[in-house]
Simulated scan of single mutants.
Amino acid sequence: MLTLIPTAIPDVAILEPQVFGDSRGFFFESFNEREFMELTGAKNLHFVQDNHSRSAKNVLRGLHYQIRQPQGKLVRVIAGEVFDVAVDVRKGSPTFGKWVGAILSAENRRQMWIPPGFAHGFVVTSDAAEFLYKTTDYWAPGDERCIAWNDPAIGIEWPIDRAPVLSDKDRNGKPLADAEVFA
């Protein structure tokens, strides 16, 4: 059983599972397609790929999206904690250029649904974190785009107190004003 927690951008949602625990440990249903579709209003979506990454503290990944093969992402953390962010890059949207963020952790077991048309990123706030996500389309490296994590026009309030650890791709992300976005 999932509970939907709305965000400031109606298309992005936090999903919180009902966890059953006792002296042996815990159990929860991490994905149920019927319930996911009912709660999010997502229609005719199916997930085609699962990805798993591990990152050290202060690693920031993002803001990534695919322009011709857009991916919806259902993201969660199974070890550690991250601050997860979605940015609306749909030019005609009333929330274009706006962002929402949430703490996802192994402890809170929350997931974030980020539909196609959004850039996604996260920063690790614990010593390390393992991050799992389902995607609605396959990875297409030539189709991937990256917006600058620190673009002042977006103004993400990352919970970090020093420069993050970045890949070359993320270090060279474009400002939203210069990025290829969805019409």
Results as ranks from 00 to 15, higher is better:
M112Y: 10
D170K: 07
K57Y: 13
W139Q: 11
G101M: 08
S53G: 08
D143K: 06
F131A: 01
V77Q: 06
E130H: 08
W99R: 02
I156Y: 03
R145E: 14
N108T: 03
R76S: 15
Y65G: 09
D84M: 02
D88V: 01
A140Y: 09
R68D: 14
K98G: 00
D84V: 04
V87S: 05
P70T: 13
G121H: 03
T95A: 00
G80P: 11
P159T: 10
L166C: 07
K73P: 14
Y133M: 11
D170R: 06
H52P: 00
A153L: 06
V85A: 03
A102L: 00
A106L: 04
R162K: 14
K134T: 10
K91A: 10
D143P: 09
R54P: 00
T135L: 05
Y133F: 15
V75A: 10
E81V: 04
F96W: 02
G97C: 03
A56Q: 14
W158I: 05
L60R: 04
V87H: 01
K98C: 05
R68F: 13
W113Y: 14
T125A: 04
I78T: 15
S55L: 10
E144N: 04
V85W: 02
D127I: 02
G101F: 08
N58Y: 12
G92A: 12
A140V: 13
N58R: 13
W139A: 13
A148E: 01
R171T: 07
T125V: 13
H52V: 13
G92C: 02
W149F: 13
K169D: 03
D161Y: 00
P152M: 09
R68N: 15
H52R: 10
I114T: 15
V165C: 02
K134M: 14
F118Q: 07
P115T: 10
W99S: 10
V77Y: 03
W149H: 05
F83E: 04
W149S: 01
H64M: 06
F96Q: 06
T125L: 06
R145W: 00
E157Q: 15
I103C: 03
F122R: 07
I160P: 03
D143V: 07
S55R: 02
T95Y: 11
P116L: 09
S105K: 07
G92M: 07
V75G: 11
H52C: 12
A102E: 12
M112P: 14
S55C: 10
I78N: 12
T125K: 04
V59A: 08
L63P: 05
N172L: 14
V124H: 06
L74K: 11
Y133I: 12
E81F: 01
G62V: 08
M112R: 07
G97L: 01
G155K: 05
